[in-house]
């Protein structure tokens, strides 16, 4: 994905500049942007170190695990059909908590595990597409690939994930600091409100789709 986006930016930029006579500006931009990326990382390193250090404490003190326990009622509400003891719940809880705390590196592994566990749940339910190999056609004895359709739980899980759950927008605060904001943290409260709103809309949407046959 990024390959296409990046190639498009560079190629379209140079071609467009050639037609509009902005080649000089493009040269400046290429060189100064590279330098800016480095100075941004230097600012960011401090804040990231602070945040990740705190999160490490939260992990060790059991704060993260405690939070995962506390959102169980919410999970029962959003995923009524996942059995209580199923491992999918554990991974979904970890993924949501990591998302809320802005632990990007911890979200994706837990999220991928959750998807695998949800696929396992479909297998347990006897969904033929989720068996290791599709049913053979009998004649050639070759397993036929059945395209897998997302389960309701997968849809709900992904919609909630893409609705953004992160409470404190640490990155945004850093970028705002770097570019001379008078009050870099001013974004926190409105960000929480906007995130809540988009998540509530996602929850309502999932609930409506869940009711449909």
């Amino acid at each position: 994905m990024l390959n296409y986006i990046w190639a498009f930016m560079i190629l379209a930029g140079v071609v467009f500049a050639a037609f509009t006579g902005n080649m000089g500006a493009v040269t400046d931009a290429a060189l100064s942007s590279a330098g800016e990326a480095v100075s941004l990382c230097i600012t960011m390193a401090g804040v990231m170190a602070l945040w990740m250090g705190l999160m490490k404490i939260a992990e060790r003190s059991g704060l993260v695990a405690g939070l995962a326990l506390r959102i169980q009622p919410f999970l029962s509400f959003m995923f009524p059909r996942i059995p209580r003891e199923h491992e999918a719940r554990k991974y979904i809880a970890t993924n949501f908590i990591a998302n809320i705390l802005g632990l990007g590196w911890a979200c994706t592994p837990a999220g991928l595990k959750a998807m695998e566990a949800l696929a396992g749940l479909e297998r347990e339910r006897g969904n033929p597409a989720y068996l290791e190999e599709g049913p053979g056609d009998g004649l050639k004895n070759a397993p036929r690939k059945v395209p897998r359709t997302a389960s309701r739980e997968m849809c709900t899980f992904l919609i909630l994930n893409t609705s953004s759950l992160q409470l404190i927008p640490v990155n945004m605060i850093v970028y705002r600091t770097q570019y001379g904001s008078v009050n870099p943290a001013a974004v926190i409260a409105p960000a929480i409100l906007a995130t809540l709103f988009s998540t509530v809309v996602a929850i309502i949407f999932c609930k409506i789709m869940d009711k449909k046959p």
Binding site: A29, S33, E36, A37, V38, L40, A45
Partner: peptide
């Protein structure tokens, strides 16, 4: 942060080029 530095260099150059071109 050290790991995302190369990515950030690439992308900021990309955006910088695209913007400077007037696109």
């Amino acid at each position: 942060v050290a790991q995302i530095l190369p990515t950030l260099v690439g992308l900021m150059v990309g955006v910088g080029v695209l913007r400077a071109s007037g696109f």
